[in-house]
């Protein structure tokens, strides 16, 4: 109910800290847009209040009640002085409208330029983001060592303070990449590769979400977005480039065998094992991810087991088929996947 009350006082609510909010900026694009938005907000609110007051006065002084109706009442005779006065007021309002619009346009272009300025800055990191129905694939390329490619899914880490270029590609339908706290959105259109530039200014974990309707599970196409210090980022990337950790316990070993012997291997990759398919998300470091099924659910044993057994149950329409594994196999598989830190 707290939010309900706040609905009437928009500005107050927006002070709360959010993981997925355009007005809680942690990136350079979002920051500039948010200040532009607030500027627009106050100017436009002032205009709205002025118009509202005029409307209320104009209508509020109307005659009421059944006695006020005189259908055959002749219209007011036109009086020249009144018309001239009204004309002057309307003309002044119109002139003001035009002036305000041009001011807003100038502000817009100014902000637009400064957001775009990011594109010409050097970008030490370049990522490729591929949209799929309904998950994200992220490629960390290495310009000097192309073979050093690291692929992950539904999570993205970037270093704070560095410009990152994103190449956005879709292989099926149109998606839109959007992490509200960091920057505005950009569409992923099959046949039209696009680029966008982002820069995080604060560290934190944020959430991105597909913003272009892309079919059944558009609602469950989310992304964990982590902005962290360059040092931490470097550590994460180095770790992520490693092959998957080999299974240690007997249960994990059995899990790996289950993985390789069942249909899992038809779609997923686990680096360092024979599983090399690319239809589904890369699972090399699956255990280190906090969320499951493109950000739909927390990555816990319960959800994971349920997900593997019947993904259609919790994300209807998803391309992953159900798996008929015995309870022991399933348990071992979960052990194995959770161990892939």
């Amino acid at each position: 109910m707290k939010d309900a009350g706040f609905a009437l006082s928009l500005p107050l609510l927006l002070e709360a800290m959010e993981m997925q909010s355009a007005l809680d900026p942690a990136g350079s694009g979002a920051r500039q847009v948010s200040s532009l938005w607030w500027l627009y907000f106050w100017i436009l609110t002032a205009i709205f209040v002025a118009v509202l007051i005029c409307t209320c006065i104009a209508i509020g002084r109307a005659r009421r009640g059944p006695l006020a109706i005189q259908p055959n009442e002749p219209p007011l005779p036109e009086s020249q002085p009144t018309e001239r006065r009204v004309f002057a007021v309307v003309a002044a309002c119109l002139a003001m409208t035009i002036a305000i619009l041009f001011a807003l346009l100038a502000l817009d272009i100014f902000t637009g330029r400064s957001v775009y300025a990011l594109t010409s800055e050097p970008h030490p990191l370049s990522l490729k983001v591929i949209g799929h129905q309904w998950w994200w694939e992220v490629h960390y390329q290495d310009a000097d060592h192309p073979e050093n490619l690291m692929i992950t899914a539904n999570e993205m880490h970037i270093p704070v303070g560095k410009v990152v270029r994103l190449e956005l590609v879709s292989t099926d339908v149109i998606h839109s990449f959007w992490v509200p706290n960091i920057s505005g959105k950009k569409d992923l259109i099959p046949g039209h590769p696009t680029k966008t530039w982002i820069k995080a200014e604060k560290s934190g974990t944020f959430r991105g979400q597909c913003a272009e309707f892309c079919g059944h599970q558009h609602a469950h196409m989310r992304l964990e977005f982590v902005a962290e210090s360059p040092a931490k980022f470097g550590k994460w990337l180095a770790q992520a480039r490693q092959n998957a950790r080999p299974p240690a316990t007997p249960s994990e070993q059995r899990g790996q065998r289950v993985f390789l012997a069942n249909q899992c291997i038809m779609c997923h990759t686990i680096e360092g094992t024979p599983a090399r398919a690319t239809l589904g998300p890369d699972l090399t470091h699956f255990g280190s991810r906090t969320r499951l099924a493109a950000g739909s659910f927390p990555n816990t044993r319960g959800y994971l087991a349920g997900w593997i057994a019947n993904p259609q149950n919790i994300k209807p329409g998803v391309k992953m088929p159900p798996n008929t594994l015995g309870p022991d196999d399933l348990n071992a598989l979960v052990d194995y996947l959770e161990s892939l830190k």
Binding site: A22, V33, L36, L104, L107, T111, P180, S183, G184
Partner: peptide, 8 residues
């Protein structure tokens, strides 16, 4: 109408 705001 403003491009930067619209993108958000």
């Amino acid at each position: 109408a403003s491009v930067p705001i619209d993108l958000q």
